[in-house]
Amino acid sequence: MAEPLDITTERLRLRPWQDSDRAPFAAMCADPAVMEFLLPVPDRAASDALLDRVQAGITARGWGFWAVELRSTQTFIGFIGIQVPGAQLPFSPCVEIGWRLAAAHWGRGYATEGARAALAYGFERLGLDEIVAFTTVHNQRSRAVMQRLGMQADPDTFKHPAVPSGHPLQEHVLYRLPRNRWGPA
């Protein structure tokens, strides 16, 4: 078991999950805008189970999809971090970077700011050679964050194995960032 840590940026704190995060996380997972490009989380029990799995990864490794709060108010706004994907993907093994923020906090650069800190942790502290990101081909907001991070899209898309066959969200795009192309902004 690794010691979980906090990562702070100018405006954010990436930290282990707390019980007080459960209700706002469930509300975020129930928001159709937040979940537009994600498979639905059917109810509070499923939301709590997802939170438990994410925290278990942090407890085991010391890193993962950390809860994110605003430093100025200690308000929970979502998650940002790096993790080993649960699904076997065409490009596995890999470490992915990801984020999910409450819609009220979109458009302020929080995803990019927190993701840069997570990339720094992955490359500088863990010594990873590459970090990937992926999303459904239609998720332009997340793709824009990936591009701001300096990630480049693979020319080919892939069908995400955890998304049901024929589902409109199954087709995904993969972005990659090798350590030799990364540099903090």
Rank of each mutant, 00 (worst) to 15 (best):
M1W: 13
E3I: 11
P4H: 02
D6Q: 15
T8S: 13
T8V: 15
T8Y: 08
E10M: 14
R11G: 10
L12G: 04
R13Q: 12
R13M: 14
R13C: 15
L14E: 02
R15I: 06
R15Y: 09
P16K: 15
W17S: 03
D19N: 14
D21A: 08
A23Q: 11
A23V: 15
P24H: 00
F25M: 02
A27F: 01
A27H: 00
C29M: 04
D31H: 06
D31L: 05
P32L: 02
A33M: 12
V34L: 00
M35E: 04
M35G: 00
E36G: 00
L38S: 12
L38Q: 11
L38Y: 12
L39Q: 12
P40F: 06
P40A: 09
V41G: 00
P42I: 06
A45G: 09
A45V: 07
A45Q: 13
A46N: 03
S47V: 02
S47C: 01
S47L: 01
S47W: 04
D48C: 07
L51P: 02
D52N: 14
R53L: 13
R53E: 14
Q55M: 10
A56Q: 15
A56K: 14
G57M: 04
G57E: 09
I58Q: 08
I58W: 00
A60S: 13
G64D: 03
G64T: 00
W66S: 04
A67F: 09
L70K: 06
R71A: 13
S72Q: 10
S72G: 06
Q74N: 13
T75Y: 01
T75W: 02
F76S: 01
G78Y: 01
F79W: 12
F79T: 05
I80A: 07
I80W: 02
Q83A: 13
P85K: 12
Q88I: 09
L89G: 10
P90N: 15
F91Y: 14
F91H: 13
S92K: 11
P93C: 01
C94R: 04
C94V: 09
V95C: 10
I97Y: 07
G98W: 02
G98D: 03
W99P: 07
R100C: 08
L101A: 05
A102I: 08
A103R: 15
A103L: 10
A104M: 07
A104N: 11
A104L: 10
A104H: 08
W106R: 11
W106D: 09
G107W: 03
G107F: 02
G109Y: 04
G109I: 05
Y110Q: 09
Y110T: 13
A111H: 08
A111G: 06
E113M: 02
G114F: 09
G114H: 07
G114N: 05
G114L: 12
A115M: 12
R116C: 03
A117E: 09
A118P: 01
L119N: 05
A120Y: 08
